[in-house]
Amino acid sequence: MTAYIANHQKKKSLLQKREQELEHALSHGFDDSKLERAAEKVREAKLAVFKALFSQSSVLPPHSYEESEEAIKWRDMPVSEIIRLYSVH
């Protein structure tokens, strides 16, 4: 039995926080460098959620994680596209 039990909800709540930060930056007209940093943080949080979901639903060890098509899409997505996605909200 493992001594550590992962809390996957933390990754999801961090993603929500990062998304709110990006939406806030967009609605208040922050400069491009701050928008890019916020978008990168959203990307990192989104990829962490994909890994957490893999870990939660798989019997394989976490180091055997292979990115899904959705994860690859987010990893390769340009920052400008992430900003555009969240500016629509």
Rank of each mutant, 00 (worst) to 15 (best):
L22K: 02
R43I: 02
S27P: 07
R75W: 03
E67N: 05
L26P: 00
K34Y: 15
L60D: 11
H63S: 11
E70S: 13
E40C: 07
A48P: 02
L60P: 00
G29H: 08
H63K: 06
R43W: 13
A71S: 04
S55V: 13
L60G: 04
E69H: 08
K41Q: 09
K34P: 11
F54V: 00
E44P: 07
E36A: 14
S64P: 00
H24A: 10
A48W: 01
E23P: 01
Q20E: 01
P61M: 01
L14Y: 05
L14N: 02
E23K: 06
A25T: 11
S64H: 01
D31W: 15
K46R: 15
K51L: 07
A38V: 01
K41G: 09
S33W: 12
E19R: 08
E23Y: 05
E70Y: 04
D31S: 14
E19I: 07
R37E: 09
H28W: 15
E23I: 13
H63V: 12
S64K: 06
G29N: 07
E44W: 10
L47F: 03
A48N: 14
A71W: 00
K46G: 10
A71G: 04
Q56Y: 11
L47H: 01
A45G: 06
P62M: 03
S33L: 15
E23H: 04
S58L: 00
P62Y: 03
S57F: 09
S68N: 02
E40K: 13
E67H: 04
E36N: 10
V59E: 10
D31A: 14
R43T: 09
S33A: 14
A25C: 04
E70P: 08
A48Y: 11
R37M: 01
E70C: 01
E67V: 04
K17F: 14
E66F: 10
Y65Q: 06
A52S: 09
K41L: 12
H63F: 10
E19V: 10
L35H: 07
E23S: 04
A45R: 06
E69D: 15
H28F: 15
Q16E: 08
K73W: 02
